[in-house]
Simulated scan of single mutants.
Amino acid sequence: MEKKIIVHTGAKPGTELPIESQVLNVPDVEFILRGRCDTPAKVLEAVRDADAALCGSEPYTREVFANAPKLKVVVRYGIGVDTIDLEAATEYGVMVANFPDFCIEEVANHALVLMLACAKKVVQLDRTLREKGWQAARALLSPMGTVHDQTLGLIAFGNIARAFAKRAKLLRMQVIAYDPYVDPAVFAEAGVESVGLMEVAERSDYVSCHLPLTPQTRGMIDAAFFSRMKPTAYFINTSRGAVVKEADLIAALEKKQIAGAALDVFEKEPIETTHPLCAMPNVILLPHTASYADATFQSLYYRVANAALTVVRGGVPEFVANPEVLPHRRK
């Protein structure tokens, strides 16, 4: 029996992947770690003879799909597929599996934590108390909003934003959102007002960004948006760093056009400690961890491995990011 080859293009040889290895330790599969493939050429070299690939943020380009004739599926850890050329995958009959129901509650909780940390200046007060003392910290209290009766503005209104909206409503906040692709009935059911993008900027005390990264959304949040925000407002991003023109955000913070920011994602990752944002006391920075919880990731590892196994045995994964491929998918 010829074994099906499943490769991992985001983990170095020797990396322990106990859950994936357990699921794929079956007679009809050979599971191979090809190393961290950070260029299309490296990805192609890794998957040229593979039947399935497991990936993180590695670049799966047209060149890859055109030259990997056995490849049937690319399984993406998580939700985003912005590093995968979906059009090329579809053209060559390759399914792209992802998990749009992954980490909804975790990221909504994370966004809530960041909003409250901004509102109550938790990180800034903690740092100042440790470094400069009690009185210096208390001198930073004003201006500080109430949270309740304030306005949360959401950029995009997908699953995570809707979960965040539910939490904000429990805090007696007004919630508005921009998303031209969502049916008005969805807004009405959630008790959220649908508004234009610039109205989100103008009315919100806290702006939380939940945009997917696409060619249309890349750099969408820019100087024009920040210039319309209140000087007491905070900007929160737990989506994708590249939807924001980071230089414009930095300029808005330097000019005190906005009160501060809380960022889990960045235009280029990882950021260095010399990054300008690292020197700003009114900015909370986290290393792209919004989705993380032990149990959540363990479940994801099982799902990723099982999706690949399903496909190499002739099936279709639970979620396909390019469903138009299904009639002519490789088998």
Rank of each mutant, 00 (worst) to 15 (best):
I5E: 10
H8N: 14
A11V: 00
P13V: 05
T15W: 10
S21C: 04
N25V: 04
F31K: 04
C37W: 11
A41E: 15
K42C: 01
D49R: 14
D51Y: 10
A53P: 07
L54Y: 08
C55E: 06
G56F: 15
P59E: 09
P59A: 13
R62A: 15
V64K: 04
F65Q: 00
A68E: 05
P69H: 02
L71G: 03
V74R: 03
Y77K: 06
I79W: 08
G80N: 09
V81A: 12
D82G: 12
D85E: 08
D85P: 02
L86V: 09
D101F: 03
C103V: 10
E106H: 00
N109K: 06
L112Q: 10
A119S: 15
Q124D: 00
R130A: 12
W134F: 15
W134V: 10
R138M: 12
S142P: 01
H148M: 07
H148Q: 13
D149H: 15
Q150F: 06
T151Y: 08
G158N: 11
N159R: 15
N159F: 02
A163G: 06
A168E: 09
A168T: 03
R172A: 10
R172G: 00
A177F: 07
A177V: 03
Y178S: 00
Y178F: 15
D179F: 03
F187I: 02
F187D: 04
F187L: 00
F187H: 01
A188V: 01
E189N: 07
A190W: 08
L197R: 01
S208W: 03
L211W: 06
M220Q: 14
I221V: 15
D222I: 05
D222G: 10
A223K: 04
A223S: 13
K230A: 12
K230C: 11
T232K: 11
Y234L: 07
I236E: 01
T238R: 08
S239H: 13
R240M: 10
R240H: 07
A242L: 09
K245C: 12
E246K: 05
A247Y: 08
L249T: 06
I250S: 05
A252F: 04
Q257E: 15
A259P: 07
G260S: 12
A262N: 08
P270V: 02
I284A: 04
L285F: 07
L286M: 15
S291N: 13
T296A: 14
Y301R: 14
N306L: 14
A307H: 02
A308Q: 08
L309M: 08
L309G: 11
V311Y: 02
V312M: 08
E318R: 11
V325Q: 04
P327W: 11
R330Y: 07
